[in-house]
C-alpha cells in the first residue's frame, strides 16, 4: 500500500522536524547565532566598503560567502547536538534513517530560510543593492537552500561522529557545495543586473537538479552513516 507508506514517511519525518523545531524554539541554539553571525558580517562588509559602489557580481559573491559560512556554523549543529547530548541513540532506536534525514533536511531548510528572510533585506539596505528581479532572487535562494540543507544534514551526521568537528565541517562541505555556491553567486548577480535573467534559465535548472540529486542521493547515503548495522 504505497499511500500508507507515504503517510508513514510524512508522519515520521514530521515527528523529527517537529521535535527539532520545538527544541530550537526553547533553546535557540542555531537560529540566534546564525542570524547574529550574518548580521555582523554584513555590517562589517558594509562599513569597510564605506559606501563605495560595487558591481552586482561582487555584491552577490559577498552575500553568498556570508550565507555559506553562517550555514557552516548553524547547519552543522543538526547532528552534533544529538551526538553531544547522547540522544543520537534515541533517534536510532525510534526512527527510520530516511525519516531522520528528511526531517533534519526540512529543519535545516526552515532554519536557513528564516535567517535569509531577515538577512536579505539587510543586504539590500546595507550594501546599497539594487534588487531588480526579486522573484528570480527568491527562487535562486530557495533552490540553493534545499541543496545546502540536504548536503549539510548528511555531512553533519558524518562530522558528529568524528573529532575536531567544528573545523572539519567546512572542510568537508566546501568541495561538495561548490557547485551550488558558484551557481547561486551567478544567479544572484543576474537578479541584480539590468537584463532580464529569466531568458537563460540554465542557473535555476542547475540549482533544481542539484537540489533533487542532493535530497535523493543524500537520503540513500545517510542510511550508512546513521545506522551502525
Amino acid at each position: 500500500m504505497p499511500a500508507r507508506l507515504i503517510m508513514d514517511f510524512i508522519s515520521g519525518a514530521w515527528a523529527v522536524m517537529k521535535k527539532d523545531a520545538l527544541e530550537e524554539y526553547r533553546a535557540r541554539y542555531a537560529f540566534n547565532t546564525t542570524l547574529l553571525f550574518c548580521v555582523t558580517c554584513l555590517v562589517m562588509v558594509s562599513y569597510s566598503l564605506g559606501g563605495a559602489v560595487t558591481d552586482p557580481m561582487l555584491q552577490s559573491a559577498m552575500l553568498w560567502v556570508i550565507l555559506f559560512f553562517s550555514a557552516m556554523t548553524g547547519l552543522s549543529r543538526a547532528f552534533i547536538k544529538e551526538e553531544d547530548r547522547g540522544t543520537m541513540n534515541t533517534l536510532r532506536l525510534c526512527c527510520r534513517a530516511d525519516h531522520v534525514f528528511y526531517g533534519k533536511t526540512a529543519m535545516n531548510f526552515l532554519l536557513m530560510s528564516s535567517v535569509i528572510v531577515i538577512v536579505a533585506p539587510l543586504f539590500i539596505i546595507l550594501l546599497n543593492v539594487n534588487m531588480r528581479h526579486v522573484g528570480y532572487f527568491a527562487l535562486t535562494t530557495a533552490l540553493a537552500t534545499v541543496g545546502l540543507s540536504a548536503v549539510s544534514a548528511l555531512l553533519s551526521a558524518i562530522v558528529a561522529q568524528a573529532r575536531a568537528r567544528g573545523m572539519l565541517f567546512p572542510v568537508l562541505a566546501f568541495p561538495a557545495l561548490m557547485p551550488v555556491f558558484l551557481t547561486a553567486v551567478r544567479a544572484t548577480g543576474m537578479s541584480l543586473a539590468e537584463a532580464a535573467p529569466w531568458t537563460g534559465g540554465g542557473e535555476l535548472v542547475f540549482l533544481a537538479a542539484y537540489a533533487v540529486a542532493a535530497t535523493v542521493g543524500g537520503g540513500f547515503l545517510f542510511e550508512y552513516v546513521f545506522s551502525e548495522q
Binding site: 508513514d8 508522519s11 515520521g12 514530521w14 515527528a15 523529527v16 517537529k18 521535535k19 520545538l22 527544541e23 526553547r26 533553546a27 547530548r85 547522547g86 540522544t87 541513540n89 534515541t90 533517534l91 532506536l93 525510534c94 526512527c95 525519516h99
Partner: peptide, 24 residues
C-alpha cells in the same frame, strides 16, 4: 542505558509523544 539519553529541552510528555510518533 547511559548512552541513550532523552531530550533535555522537552518535557516527559513531549519526549514520549516524539518517540511514539517516530515509531509510528
Amino acid at each position: 542505558a547511559p548512552d541513550v539519553s532523552l531530550y533535555d529541552e522537552l518535557s516527559p510528555e513531549e519526549n514520549l509523544d516524539f518517540m511514539s510518533r517516530a515509531r509510528g
